[in-house]
Simulated assay, not measured.
Amino acid sequence: MSTKMVTKPANEVYRLPPKLFDARCKSCWVTFAILVLIVSSFYSLNLEIASFMSADSMRAMGSFVLELLRPNFEHDFLLKVFKSSFETLAMSALGTILAAIFGLAWAIPASKAYPTDPARWRKLARGVLNGLRAVPELVWAMLLLIALGLGPFAGTVALAFHTTGVLGRLFAECIENSPDEAAYALRVRGASGFIVFWYATFPQVLPQLVSYTLYRWENNIRAAAILGVVGAGGLGQMLAYYMALFQMSETSTILLAMIILVAAVDALSYFSRKRFSR
């Protein structure tokens, strides 16, 4: 039985492992800058972790949790919660529908349908969409409450404004990244831009548009519940009212209604997206 000797090639170069930090390494400097930013953030926020973990804080938090564990299930109060839940659901649904319509209307000029498309209004349309989505829903609601007054109408319009910017940008990306074969076949035959979009591009991107719209509806359910805190109606308005009065039993019932509503919409959205993806 013979054994073979394995020899290393003469031209093989043995390299040392890289240094942990190298002055010429850009990623090292970026990582260092991020670490400095994180440490300075902790220092500037002045987090009082010791007082948060103190015995008095734990006792107060425990008492608060015990009060929340006794929700109010009285018939009259449950009717109020059900009405506010429907109001929150209607705000989110109508706001999302309006945003999908206007988002698609802005996405068409904000997208470049094919490589030689001049897309003259692309920058302007994208600027409008960026402006709409840069302002949070809560800020839109506070601005619109001045013009439209208290109630769900201002919340619905606030959701529509912000979500139009989000969906418009997503829709524009879908249109730009859609396959161009069918649209090209119609363009070379002299079809108009509307015909090309309606019969070639739109059917291909429709499943993605629906998926994005349903996903934003999920987010708008949560946003609609928050908008009520500033007087835009729905469960959020009830939550702000009863929390201000320190009525924790009623607050607990409202929180349970929010959880059930969000879970139901999430489940409906999930099954809808699964069906459209087939």
Rank of each mutant, 00 (worst) to 15 (best):
P207L: 10
G165N: 11
A147C: 09
M142N: 13
G165H: 13
I146A: 11
Y199A: 01
L150H: 05
S192W: 05
F197T: 07
C174M: 04
A147E: 02
P152G: 06
C174G: 14
F194M: 00
S192H: 04
L144P: 03
L206I: 10
P179S: 07
L144T: 04
Q208Y: 11
V157G: 05
G155K: 09
T163G: 02
G168S: 08
S192E: 07
L148G: 06
G149P: 15
G190S: 11
A172M: 09
V188C: 07
P207H: 07
L159H: 09
A154S: 14
R189I: 02
A183P: 15
E173S: 14
N177P: 15
G149Q: 09
V166D: 01
L150S: 05
V205A: 12
L206C: 09
F194C: 04
N177C: 12
A172L: 09
Y199H: 10
V157Y: 04
A185N: 01
F171E: 07
G190A: 08
A182D: 00
L144D: 04
E181N: 04
R169K: 15
T164S: 08
A185C: 12
A160C: 08
A160H: 14
V157N: 08
A200I: 10
A191Y: 07
R169P: 15
F202D: 01
P152C: 03
S192Y: 03
V205R: 14
Y199E: 02
